[in-house]
Design a protein around this nucleic acid. Structure first.
Length: 426
RNA sequence: GGAAGAGUGGCAGAGCUGGUUUAAUGCACCGGUCUUGAAAACCGACGUACCUUAACGGGUACCGGGGGUUCGAAUCCCUCCUCUUCCGCCA
């Protein structure tokens, strides 16, 4: 959610940004509507505040009269307050109505895209930020997609997952399970080495947390909802980890804050189906190591570069071909100012698979979280929040299996061998 | 799940028979005096959000959340949440 002050002061920049996001003229009137609602809010509040000040003064006077025994005068004054009270009551009703209206409209405004965000409406418009510098691997015709390899080597079983739970809940077994565990530990160790504090958060969150990071009310249908207790299964560790700092005012010297956490992630992915979701390409439950940063506004983009370097290193160590995309206005998430997607190349499927998404939310998320820092002069400002996957497992596994298949079996990259304790899956 | 108790400013902790509490007091933090420096002592400032003002300043709301009673609520009532202790269940 954007700050009202920002919208008022940067109306032109906001409208320009919304156009990058392909807002139509009919939708752009929202901005003026918000400003005029806020005007109403201000004048109404000024009016209400002065009326309340008046009643406070009168109440005090009544108390003094009672104390000095002037009952009759006190009673008379009581009568004078009642009309004022009625005006306050109706004013408050009106104010809360305006506030509600204002909030609804404010929630419809996405984050302002960073200046580097390219225009565009679809995936193909995303800009290749860093291409894979070498030739893409080519596998023999006999190469198999990962779901066939999984069956051949007994690594994971989608039918069993479906039997136990439903489609999209893979069951890993044997070396497939060990590979998962190895990747999790590898990613966590790398994050630790890069200075991120490890967190094991709750996997279910309450509504306030889901709201804090912006999953609600925007992506309601994406999350599994435990209605009995009104809790949500986390779609990403970003939610519980970032909410550590909900309603917090940090000392500026505490910045930056760097956190990481491994969690399973649950996504309903309502409405997805088809060839692109076969195997591990898109599942309801997958494992992910997330990195989260809370940064000073001046340093958030430098931090973002660091995150990109960190994730690149992981993929280099895993010897996977990858490219980095800068998302266009049409593909950019609602809450993000700038997002880079990492895609690995699956040689068997002959297509790119998204394995990581790194976003800078600037103050969009921290405004809703009420996450601030105060500087030496005690001035409070919203911090910038960023996060990225480092990395998401399911598709990494898909890529490893496919790209590393040989006659002898599937070769485990050197960097991962200390974790798997085996060099080949055969 | 059952019973009892409790939730007050960064922390500790009064107020809780409704009206000099504009939330006492202590500690911590910050500024100052003193000191070669520090400590101690003393003086001062010391929450968050919003409205208003060019600024100084003024105003409103907030004592776990929400609602109610009253001219007036930290204080009374209702409701929800959380924590502590005991019991039950349990990896």
């Amino acid at each position: 959610m954007l700050q009202l002050g920002f919208i008022r002061d940067n109306k032109e920049a906001l409208i320009k940004g919304l156009k990058i996001r392909n807002f139509k003229d009919s939708e752009l009137v929202l901005v003026d509507k918000i400003i005029s609602l806020d005007d109403n809010r201000k004048s109404l509040q000024t009016d209400l505040d002065s009326k309340k000040a008046e009643t406070n003064k009168l109440s005090k006077a009544i108390g003094d009269l009672f104390k000095s025994g002037k009952q009759a005068e006190a009673q008379e004054m009581k009568g004078n307050v009642s009309s004022l009270k009625e005006e306050i009551k109706s004013g408050e009703d009106k104010l809360s109505e305006i506030m509600k209206d204002l909030e609804t409209n404010l929630l419809a405004i996405p984050n302002v895209p960073h200046l580097s965000v390219p225009a565009g409406t679809k995936e193909e418009d995303n800009e290749v930020y860093r291409a894979w510098p070498k030739d893409l691997p080519v596998l023999p015709e006999s190469a198999k997609p990962h779901w066939e390899l999984a069956t051949k080597y007994n690594l994971f079983d989608l039918q069993l997952g479906a039997k136990i739970t439903g489609a999209g809940f893979p069951l890993y077994r044997g070396k497939g399970a060990k590979l998962q565990r190895a990747l999790i530990n590898f990613f966590l160790d790398e994050a630790d080495a890069a200075g991120y504090e490890e967190i094991i958060p709750p996997l279910l969150v309450n509504e306030a947390s889901a709201r804090g990071t912006g999953q609600l009310p925007d992506k309601e249908g994406q999350m599994y909802h435990v209605t009995e207790d009104d809790l949500y299964l986390i779609p990403t560790a970003e939610v519980p980890i970032t909410n550590i700092y909900r309603d917090v005012i940090l000392e500026e010297s505490k910045l930056p804050i760097k956190l990481t956490g491994y969690t399973p992630c649950f996504r309903r992915e309502a409405g997805s189906y088809g060839a692109h979701v076969r195997g591990l390409n898109r599942v309801h439950q997958f494992d992910k190591i997330e990195i989260v940063r809370i940064e000073h506004p001046d340093k958030s983009y430098a931090a973002m570069e660091e995150m990109i370097a960190h994730i690149s290193l992981l993929l280099d160590k895993l010897e996977l071909p990858y490219r980095i995309l800068r998302l266009c206005g049409g593909d950019l998430g609602f809450t993000s100012a700038l997002t880079y997607d990492f895609e690995i190349y699956s040689a068997a499927q002959k297509r790119w698979l998204e394995v990581s998404s790194v976003s800078n939310f600037e103050t969009f998320q921290s405004n809703r979280l009420k996450l601030r820092y105060k500087d030496e002069d005690n001035k409070k400002s919203l911090a910038h929040t960023l996060n990225g996957s480092a990395l998401a497992l399911a598709r990494i596994v898909a890529g490893l299996l496919e790209n590393n298949q040989t006659e002898a079996g599937i070769v485990i990259p050197k960097a991962l061998q200390p974790y798997t304790k085996f060099e080949i899956i055969n």
